[in-house]
Amino acid sequence: MPDPAPLLTIGQVAERTGLSVHALRFYEREGVLVDPVRRDPGGRRLYSENDVDWLTVCVILRASGMPLPAIRRYTELVREGDGNEEERLTLLRAHRERLTAQIGDLARCLDLVDHKVGVYEDVLAGRAAPCRPASAG
């Protein structure tokens, strides 16, 4: 029988996930880990590969703007197991709608920035006159 996967220290998990040790402790306190964090005989935290995978999901959800209470709720639903997939789907669809709206807003922002970059490139290349203050420079 093969040895079980080795457990990782908090420092190793911080390195793998890009989270600080402080953030990992915060996530644990906030209840966003699916499984309880194990401890070695000295009381130091030990994490499994599943913990790292779950934390990676949490990092991506957080980076996408999902509020911590929503991540916590999603974690609770996963922890409860089968039977609540509809609620999980509703939560993720709502977040996807917010992301889609943000992407639309960012696309409009990028269009403006692209336009302004073009204006200044033309000015610097001598293809257009310098912008006047009244033209929203």
Rank of each mutant, 00 (worst) to 15 (best):
A129I: 02
D3T: 13
P41W: 09
V117F: 04
D111E: 13
G31M: 04
V117E: 10
Y120S: 07
M1K: 13
L19Y: 02
A5W: 01
R98W: 05
R38E: 11
I103F: 00
A101I: 04
S135Y: 10
E85S: 12
R44W: 13
V123T: 12
I60K: 15
R45P: 00
V37W: 01
E28C: 12
L68K: 02
G65I: 09
E28H: 14
R93S: 14
L55K: 02
E85I: 09
T17H: 03
G83T: 07
V59M: 05
G83S: 06
G43I: 06
G118T: 04
I103V: 12
L92M: 12
L68Y: 00
Q102E: 14
Q12L: 06
E28K: 07
A101P: 00
R44I: 08
S64Q: 11
V32R: 01
A14F: 02
N50T: 13
G81E: 05
E86R: 09
V57F: 03
P67M: 09
Y120M: 08
A94V: 00
R132D: 13
D35N: 12
P133Q: 05
G126S: 07
G18T: 14
K116M: 14
V13S: 01
L112C: 07
L99V: 14
V13L: 14
V32G: 00
V21G: 05
R93V: 15
E86G: 07
P6I: 13
E97L: 06
